[in-house]
């Protein structure tokens, strides 16, 4: 009797959250797959399309490949940011005076609204009023101002720098807490054995940091697939499609051209790539994905 009542209570406690996840996570996942095999738009009833959407994506759509390539470049920038963050974490991880001040400064940009970050950097890159062109010209590195965000060569790297500025502090904090969990006696033992500093770093620090690095990689990956806000505000994918990512392309196909069916196929492709990459990262860092939780 009592246990049945308890079962009802448990069901009621879980139901609202589960309902939200089923309606806004699982159902969309299934719906995306179904939609990707159909011709469908809000005004036309659905008809079976077979693999047409996928065929168009893989064979006829150059922008898809460009967006995929850009997304992979964005992704490739994340390990660089993680390495930078590791350098900073090593610098502030000691009884250095004022370490907490430096930590705060580096972290300060992370919780900012990304749209605001985009506007700030849009301005930083400005040809006349921007600090970057001004500083580069003062230093004699360039002689003509560069329109970074309108340039096919510079637009994507510029956005990647803005993104790195925002996430650096987050990576640093994750790595820092990883560093602080390494038992000090390991270093003492190594020192007694006469291991030089670089050996202590490669033999103790890096292997012990694996879970933290894996966490950073996964977050960095999700972040590259979702850097929508920055791109939308700074370049809207332009010039041409030079800064188009999969997510911005999905948005445009779905909500600008109202091609929901094709956008669904793009989403399925994006999701498959994301899963594949998560699995690769998991293997590369040597397992222990449980560390995320």
């Amino acid at each position: 009797m009592r246990s049945r009542r308890r079962a009802t209570v448990i069901a009621c406690f879980l139901a609202p959250s589960l309902l939200i996840f089923i309606v806004y996570r699982i159902l969309p996942l299934v719906w995306n797959v179904v939609l990707s095999f159909e011709y469908w738009s809000p005004l036309h009833p659905a008809t079976w399309a077979g693999l047409d959407n996928y065929q168009e994506m893989l064979q006829d759509d150059d922008v898809f490949w460009l967006a995929l390539w850009n997304t992979l470049i964005f992704l490739g920038s994340q390990p660089v940011a993680i390495a930078l963050a590791l350098g900073i974490a090593l610098l502030v991880n000691s009884d250095l005076k004022g370490a907490s001040v430096y930590r705060t400064i580096v972290f300060l940009s992370y919780p900012l609204m990304t749209v605001a970050v985009a506007i700030i950097w849009h301005w930083m890159y400005n040809e006349r009023g921007g600090l970057i062109n001004y500083a580069l010209r003062q230093l004699g590195i360039i002689h003509q101002p560069i329109a970074f965000l309108d340039s096919f060569a510079w637009a994507l790297p510029s956005i990647i720098i803005a993104n790195t500025w925002q996430v650096l502090g987050f990576f640093m904090i994750v790595l820092l807490s990883g560093l602080q969990n390494i038992p000090p006696h390991l270093y003492e033992a190594a020192r007694v054995d006469g291991a030089p500093a670089w050996a202590r770093f490669f033999r103790i620090t890096l292997p012990m940091l694996r879970p933290s690095v894996f966490l950073c990689l996964v977050i960095g990956m999700l972040n590259s697939f979702s850097a929508f806000d920055l791109i939308y505000v700074m370049t809207n994918g332009g010039p041409g499609h030079a800064t188009e990512l999969l997510i911005t392309y999905i948005y445009k196909q779905g909500f600008v051209s109202t091609r929901f069916d094709y956008a669904a196929a793009l989403t399925v492709a994006q999701f498959a790539i994301l899963l594949l990459l998560t699995w690769i990262a998991h293997r590369a860092v040597g397992g222990n994905a449980g560390a995320i939780e």
Partner: peptide, 19 residues
């Protein structure tokens, strides 16, 4: 629940809008 964390919100926008 843990497998739901693997589904980023960005991968759900089209159906989420329709729902």
């Amino acid at each position: 629940l843990l497998s739901c964390t693997l589904i980023p919100f960005q991968a759900t926008i089209i159906p989420a809008y329709l729902i």
